[in-house]
């Protein structure tokens, strides 16, 4: 874990660039994180990201894709469209959370 700059702000990140401090994230930062991986953040993206944040706060774990669908109510197809190819990891990155560890 090191301190690095995102959008001119100092934050703690792991070696891949995922934020490690829950409270260092805000929606402004999310825009920069999304842009870093080629995603222009829309309200649809933000809804999913906010669910991830809220669920993490409650459970202490980044929700898996299935949980986003089952608990959050986001259809799997939509998540693959919003965050192409690797939705679970990309959502976690934009939401300033660790990668999900669950298998399903």
């Amino acid at each position: 874990m090191t301190v690095a700059a995102v959008a001119g702000r100092e934050v703690h990140v792991d070696e891949e660039g995922f934020l490690t401090q829950y409270d260092e994230w805000d929606e402004e930062l999310a825009k920069t994180l999304a842009a870093n991986i080629g995603i222009e953040l829309t309200e649809a993206h933000m809804k999913a990201v906010r669910f991830l944040r809220a669920d993490f706060k409650q459970t202490g774990e980044t929700p898996t894709l299935r949980r986003c669908t089952n608990v959050g109510g986001f259809p799997t197809k939509d998540l693959f469209q919003l965050f192409p190819a690797k939705p679970a990891k990309k959502m976690a990155y934009v939401a300033g959370l660790p990668k999900p560890v669950g298998c399903v």
Binding site: A4, A5, V11, E15, E16, G17, N36, A85, Y93
Partner: peptide, 11 residues
């Protein structure tokens, strides 16, 4: 401060 690394996500 060095810029944060960005995950590659080889899509």
């Amino acid at each position: 401060t060095a810029p944060a690394p960005v995950p590659t996500f080889e899509t």
